[in-house]
Amino acid sequence: MVYKVDYRDGDVLRWSLTDDGAEYAVDDGYAPTLYVSAHDDGTLADVRSPTTPATRPRKDRSARSFDTAPGVIEDIL
């Protein structure tokens, strides 16, 4: 299971736990996903990135948030 991702010298290093500690592998296909929502008087138009090509409505809460505000999911390609 991946527990950390580093960016080093243009490479994505995907770290995983092993019986002996941790090891990394270069991941050429890594594409992060960001969960974006607006708060207070903000709107989704205020927080959406114009440079992100793929966005879709967020249908539920992210795993790390108790936020129930409408949001979008941005896939960084």
Rank of each mutant, 00 (worst) to 15 (best):
V2Q: 15
Y3A: 05
K4T: 13
V5C: 06
D6L: 02
D6G: 00
D6Y: 03
D6N: 03
Y7W: 15
Y7K: 13
R8F: 04
R8L: 03
R8I: 01
G10Y: 06
G10C: 06
V12T: 15
L13D: 13
L13T: 12
R14I: 05
S16R: 13
S16Q: 11
S16N: 09
L17N: 06
L17H: 10
T18Q: 11
T18E: 10
T18M: 09
T18K: 11
D19T: 01
D20C: 01
G21E: 10
G21N: 06
A22F: 08
E23A: 08
E23G: 04
E23P: 00
E23R: 08
E23N: 03
Y24N: 05
Y24G: 02
Y24W: 12
Y24H: 13
V26I: 14
V26R: 09
V26Q: 04
D27G: 08
D27R: 08
D27E: 14
D27K: 10
D28K: 15
D28L: 13
Y30V: 00
P32W: 10
P32Q: 08
Y35I: 03
V36I: 07
S37T: 04
S37Q: 00
D40V: 01
D41W: 02
G42E: 02
L44Q: 05
A45D: 15
D46Q: 11
V47P: 02
V47N: 02
V47W: 05
V47I: 06
V47E: 03
R48H: 00
R48Q: 00
R48S: 00
R48E: 00
S49C: 13
P50D: 00
T51C: 01
T52H: 10
P53I: 10
T55R: 05
R56D: 08
P57V: 06
P57T: 08
R58P: 00
R58E: 03
R58V: 02
K59P: 03
D60H: 14
R61W: 04
S62N: 11
A63M: 09
R64D: 10
R64V: 12
S65E: 04
T68I: 07
A69P: 04
V72W: 01
V72R: 01
I73V: 09
E74S: 07
E74N: 09
E74F: 05
I76P: 03
I76T: 08
L77P: 14
L77R: 12
